[in-house]
Design a protein around this nucleic acid. Sequence first.
DNA 1: AATCATGCCGAATGATTATTCAGACGACCG
DNA 2: CGGTCGTCTGAATAATCATTCGGCATGATT
Lengths: 329, 329
Amino acid sequence: MPNDYSDDRLRLIARLYYLDGLGQNEVAKFAKVSQAKVSRLLALARERGIVRITVADYEPRRRELEEKLRTKFGLATAVVIKSSDGLEGTDLRRAVGHFGAAVAGGLIEPRDIVAVAGGRTIQELVQHLPAVHNRSLTVVQAMGSVDSNVSQVDAQEVGRVVAQRLGGNFLSLNTPAFIPEKRTRDALLTLEQVRNVHAHLDRARVALVGLGTLANSVFVERGTLDAVMIRDLERAGAVGEVCGRFIDARGQECATAWRDRVIGITLPQLRKIPQVIAIVSGSDRTAAILAGIAGGMIKSLIIDELAASTLLGMPALPPAKVTRKSARS
Amino acid sequence: MPNDYSDDRLRLIARLYYLDGLGQNEVAKFAKVSQAKVSRLLALARERGIVRITVADYEPRRRELEEKLRTKFGLATAVVIKSSDGLEGTDLRRAVGHFGAAVAGGLIEPRDIVAVAGGRTIQELVQHLPAVHNRSLTVVQAMGSVDSNVSQVDAQEVGRVVAQRLGGNFLSLNTPAFIPEKRTRDALLTLEQVRNVHAHLDRARVALVGLGTLANSVFVERGTLDAVMIRDLERAGAVGEVCGRFIDARGQECATAWRDRVIGITLPQLRKIPQVIAIVSGSDRTAAILAGIAGGMIKSLIIDELAASTLLGMPALPPAKVTRKSARS
DNA sequence: AATCATGCCGAATGATTATTCAGACGACCG
DNA sequence: CGGTCGTCTGAATAATCATTCGGCATGATT
C-alpha cells in the first residue's frame, strides 16, 4: 500500500514524533518513508485534529483600562492590548494589530458595508483577521492611495485584504489620496466610479480607520506632505489626521488648502457611520484621538496599553457640536 | 524586568508560536529576546503544561492475535505488536521494543525480583521502559556477557538499564557467558558473587528473556559460536537458545559440550519463575518459541505481528514433562 | 576586596524540519 | 497508443530551531 493516509498511520507517526520524542528522521525509518513525507504527514495529522496543541489562554487585553476608557470617553467599544515592556514602533503596531484583529473581526457583521482606510497599524491588524470567508461584506476603500506605487499600508491594499480574509467584495477607489489642484480633484469626484464609492461610504455601518499626527504620519514618511504645508496645518490648529483629513482639537476639519486636495471619505460621512473603529498605537497620538472622539468621528478604539494610560490621564473634551468652523490660532 | 518567567509571559509566547504560527524569530522580536531564549521559554512552557500536545491514541497491538496466541499456547500474557508493512531486522526490533516496553513495564510489580537476559530486541525494549523510578526492584543479571567488551545488548548492560529506568538495584554477574573449560566454569560458579546471583535467580518472580536461533543469534554474530559447535548442536536437535542454553523441540537442554560452558540461569530455574516474558521479533524464531513454551520456560510473549501469525499456523506442542534427557538425532 | 560559584544571556553553530524541485506514475482523454 | 494533466515521491536545499559557548552579572564565601 504505497500511499496510506489512514488515521491509524497518522496516529502512529504523530505519536512517535510528539509523544515519544523521536526526530522525523527516526520516525521516517520506522515508517519506511522519507523525512520529507513525515513532515507532510505530521502536518496532515495536525490538520485532521489527530494532533491537538492547546495553549493555556493568554489574555491579551487590559479589561480594566478598557472599561475606564469606555466610560470616560463614551466609547462604544474600547480594546486595550497589553504591550508588556517597552515595545514601540513596528513591534507595537504588530502587537496591537495581532491581538486587535480578533476583536475587530468580531465587530463586523456578516453583511456589513465596511469602510476601510490605510495606515500602518491597521495594516498589521487586517493581516491577522480570522481567515473565515463566511461573510458577504462590501468593503469600500475610504481614501485614495498615498502615492503611485501602492504600498501595503494603502487603503487600497488594506481593503483588499479585508475583503479577501473576511469574505466579500471590494470596492476600490482607484485614485490618489491627494491631488495638487482642486479642479482636478473635483473633476475626479464626479467620476461614476468615485461617486459609487462615496454612495457606499454613505451607507457604511462600520469603518476601520487609523489616526495620524502631524509629525509622524504616513504622509510625512512618504514625502507627500512638505514643510510648508505642515506649517499651514499647524497654524490652522491641526492636531491630527484621519482618512487624509486634518482635524483640530475639537475634531473639525482644518481650513487649509489641503482640504481641497483630498479624495476620500469626509468627516460628516464618518460621523454618520455608527461603528467607526480607530486602530491606534503609540502614545504620541493621544491628541488626535481626543480630537477624533470630540469631533464625533471615532466611536470605538483599539489601542495599546501605554497609549490608553496616557489617554486616561488627559481631560475628555465634551463632544463639540458647536462650531462648524475650525478655531484659528 | 530582565528575567520574567511568569506564566503569563509563557502563555503569550506559546500562543504566538503554537497557535498563531509565528516563527521563533518573529516571537523573539515580539518579546524582545533572542530566538535562543524563545526556544528555551517554549521548552519551559511545555514542561509547565502551559502547552499541551495530545495525540489521538494509536493502538499498537493486535488484540485478536493476542487472544488466539494466549489460548492456543496457554500463555499468561501475549502481546502482539503491529508491524505495519515489511519491517525487519533492526526496525522490527525497534517497533517491538518501543511498544512492548509499556506492557512489559506494567507486568513488573514494585518489589519484584527480575531476572534479565541479553539480546537485541530486549535491548530495544528496556530503552523505552517508562522512566519512573518509583519501584524498588531487584534486577538480576541472568546470563554473563558474550564477550569482553561489553555491548549494549549484553545482559549486564540491559539489566543496568532496567534497574535505572524502573528504579531498584542491580545484581551483576560479572562473568563471561561462556567459559571454554568446564573446570574453570565450575570454579566460577562457586564464587560468592555468582552464587548470590543464582540465589536471587531462584527467587525471581519475573524474567525478561530473548530467544535465539542457531543461525541467527548474538553468539554467531559475535563469533562466540563456531561452525563445529553449531554442527554439534544441530545433531543434538537444538532448535533455539534461551539465556545461552540451547534447547531441542521439546524444550529440553541439548546435551553437548556447550552446556558445560555456560554461566547463567538454568532451565529449571526459568521453569520455576512464574512470569517469564520472552521478547521476540522475527518470524525465523518460531521453532525456538514453540520449544521454549513446550519446555515450560516461557510463560508470556511479546512479539511482532508477522511472527505471531506464523506461530498461529504451527501446531502447539503439548508441554513436555516426560523426558529429561534430550532426544538425540 | 578578591575569589568563586551560579545563573542567565545572545551570537554562533550544529541539528532538525519544511519546502522546492524534478522525476515517476497513473488516470483520463484524443 | 501517445499525450497531458494531476498527484505523489524523495533528494536536495532552504529555513527554522536547539544547543553550545564564552561573557557578564549577581551574590555568597573567603
